[in-house]
């Protein structure tokens, strides 16, 4: 299954008439609620961050739903990966608390995004795709712990770049932007922990932060995840030239975004 196609089903242009009706009726339902803040007050789950923020969304709801379904797809992938890993017994006992915690966060993200898409924005949350974490028989993450850790790092670093890449697409909604940022930094914490864990175990020499565009000892297939991370210029300022700090350290100090197409290209390796 192709992820892009999956997400296209969210777009009314390509839907069947029946689905279109559902889409627009939901949108209509959303309009009737008037604005996001009113709807939030009616949401079933405690959405603290939404109710706590003062401003209401002025962004195009349809576009927000598209972005959040993209994020939800990635969260489905991460949750299923860790849940399968925890159940499989591949994780060393001493590390189980780490991956249980990460699994719990990914599940919380799935539930949160599902709730926001479905009950706040009035859209249709994307269903969980079927994943193939062997990537066509190339990896055995649930039989080999180093492979499990390597793919975990790949997914977390991808997640950080994916959320960052959407900041501009959700910035018209203060609520959604803030929620996305609050997930983004959690993914970055996960990434740092998994990267350092791999190095502690002697499987790699990576640090918690990404040096240049290095994949370390990850499989070559992960190159696209780190492409561009070597950047040292931001807002027209070459920070290496400015500071005299080595390029490796400067590259570590800024994480780079990835576009939706880039991320889906990476994620599609793991779709059944």
């Amino acid at each position: 299954m192709n992820l892009l196609k999956l997400l296209d089903t969210m777009c009314p242009d390509t839907n069947s008439p029946e689905e279109k009706d559902m889409f627009f009726s939901r949108r209509e339902a959303f309009r009737q609620f008037g604005d996001l803040s009113k709807k939030v007050a009616m949401a079933a789950v405690p959405l603290g961050v939404l109710t706590a923020l003062p401003k209401v969304a002025k962004a195009d709801t349809e576009s927000l739903i598209g972005v959040l379904n993209y994020a939800l797809t990635l969260e489905h992938l991460e949750y299923r990966y860790y849940q399968t890993g925890v159940e499989s017994g591949v994780i060393e006992g001493a590390d189980l608390n780490i991956f249980t915690k990460i699994r719990d966060h990914e599940l919380a993200h799935v539930n949160f995004l599902t709730e926001v898409i479905g009950n706040v924005l009035g859209g249709m949350p994307v269903v969980e795709p079927e994943f193939d974490f062997t990537a066509g028989g190339n990896f055995a993450p649930f039989m080999d712990y180093p492979t499990f850790l390597a793919l975990a790092q790949a997914f977390e670093d991808t997640g950080v770049r994916a959320y960052k890449g959407q900041a501009g697409n959700v910035m018209e909604s203060d609520v959604v932007l803030t929620a996305a940022l609050s997930i983004h930094s959690v993914e970055a914490r996960h990434a740092s922990m998994v990267r350092r864990l791999r190095t502690k175990k002697g499987q790699d020499t990576v640090k918690g932060w990404i040096t240049n565009g290095s994949i370390g000892s990850l499989p070559a297939a992960t190159q696209a995840i780190y492409a561009g991370e070597e950047n040292v210029s931001h807002g027209g300022v070459d920070v290496t030239a400015l500071t005299g700090i080595d390029a490796a350290a400067v590259s570590e100090g800024w994480d780079e975004p990835l576009s939706k197409d880039q991320v889906l290209g990476i994620a599609s390796l793991f779709l059944a």
């Binding site: 923020l53 740092s192 932060w209």
Partner: peptide, 24 residues
Amino acid sequence: QFIENVDYLVIAGKIVSVEARHAA
């Protein structure tokens, strides 16, 4: 949420995830 210019927002995003990596 208070940043108006998307370029500044992305730059802030590039930095915050590194701070989160540090924090972890």
